[in-house]
Amino acid sequence: MNAVSIIAGNTFREVIRDRVLYGLVVFALMLLFLSLALGQLSFDENLRLSANFGFAGIHIATIVLAVFVGSSLVSKEIEKQTILTLLARPISRSQFILGKALGLMSVLLVVAFSLSLILSIFLFLLDFSFTVEYLIAVAGVLFEAAILLSIAIFFGSFSRPMMTVIFTVAVFLLGHWVDSLSYFVSKSDSVFFRFVGTGVSYLVPNLERFNWRAAPVYATEIPLTEVFNATLSMVGWVLVLISATMLIFRRRDFV
């Protein structure tokens, strides 16, 4: 077993044994059950309401996990000085970062797929017609979570957990607003606003491009090229952010 998979395995165990995860999973399960109840309130759209609410539950749980656990993933190791014994072993700092990121990404994968499996059972009982879009929608949630996790790890490598959460939440909010921002920029006469707006739209990932949650609910098709481009974009962002984190981490003193 190489160092990356050993660290990833230990990170997976760390998060799985953390009570925060269980609190979050219970919260998501409550949302899923609530989605069933809310569906019953609707006269005509009960299935769509349940599916919408269910996907929102999976989205919130996965994003909160990526942002809040990801923010303290590296800084906790530095604060508690557990990193000292780890880096004294024959592993590089890049392997450490990669291992931590992969460990939490595996947790995100398990949580998102477990919750979507539970939701699919609920929806199956309500005679929901499943298409491949259901899986693509879950993948979209995971792609967004992977980018936000990389952002949290990037900021977490040089700032305190609270600041990291604030920065990452800011990117999350801006990331869902990039399309509107680009629209306003195109309509604006202000050179300054156009300059800043264009800069922000390039610096912040467009998270709305991973939002396919409406497609399975309203039985619309997602073009494969769209999925392919979004996947490339996710891989690009994750690679750039994790590489930047490794670069920052390479010569950092642990005093």
Binding site: R13, E14, Q81, T82, L84, T85
Partner: peptide, 13 residues
């Protein structure tokens, strides 16, 4: 082999 000063270890293990 290295033992740091005031060691804090992974307490979930």
């Amino acid at each position: 082999g290295f033992l740091p000063e005031r060691p804090y270890f992974y307490d979930y293990l």
